[in-house]
Amino acid sequence: MRSLYDRLRHAISFEIIGLLLVVPLGSLLFHVPLADFGVVGLVSATLATLWNIVYNYFFDRALQRAYGTTLKTRMMRVVHAALFELGLLVVLLPFIAWYLGVTVWQAFIMDLSFAAFYMVYAFCFNWAYDTLFPLPEWEKA
């Protein structure tokens, strides 16, 4: 399993790169001032970073228990990303509606857009991260 240092490097790099991509795109797509969308992005990234560390720890423990390894198949990566985003969706919806002064439905659409972006991004980022920083146990598989 990954060390705490490795999990912190993963979570922080994931959020920084994600913010650099999603804030300008979201601002353009939803016609929200860049600064306002930046605040939403920053708060979302902070909550997501905390969720990322906790979620990945428990997901890896469950994989280790169930399969004896933390090596993820392509389908397991899809499940991993989808469950992560579902949990985050529940947390972010009230904040987005409140901060941007939009309806819950508008916040839901924005949140779904965030989730769709981050689901694809998480799949790609985690695959790249695992390729750059493989665990020794995976060499046996």
Rank of each mutant, 00 (worst) to 15 (best):
L4T: 13
A62L: 13
L34D: 06
M1F: 13
L8S: 06
L89E: 10
F37K: 00
S27N: 05
G87M: 10
P94T: 15
L71D: 02
F123Y: 15
C124I: 13
W138K: 05
I12C: 07
A11I: 01
L92W: 11
L92G: 10
F114K: 12
T69K: 01
L83R: 11
T73R: 08
V91I: 15
N126C: 03
R61L: 13
G41A: 01
R65D: 10
S13K: 02
Q64V: 09
Y121D: 03
G87S: 09
Q64R: 15
F84R: 04
R9A: 12
F117N: 05
R61K: 13
Y55P: 03
Y5P: 03
I53Y: 13
P136R: 12
L19M: 15
D111S: 00
T70R: 03
E137L: 11
W51I: 08
W127M: 10
T49K: 07
I53D: 03
V91K: 11
A122E: 08
V91A: 14
F58S: 02
F84Y: 14
F133C: 09
A107K: 05
V79D: 09
M75T: 11
L21H: 02
L83C: 13
V54T: 13
T49R: 09
L25H: 01
V120Q: 00
S44D: 01
A11M: 05
R77F: 15
L47S: 04
A115K: 08
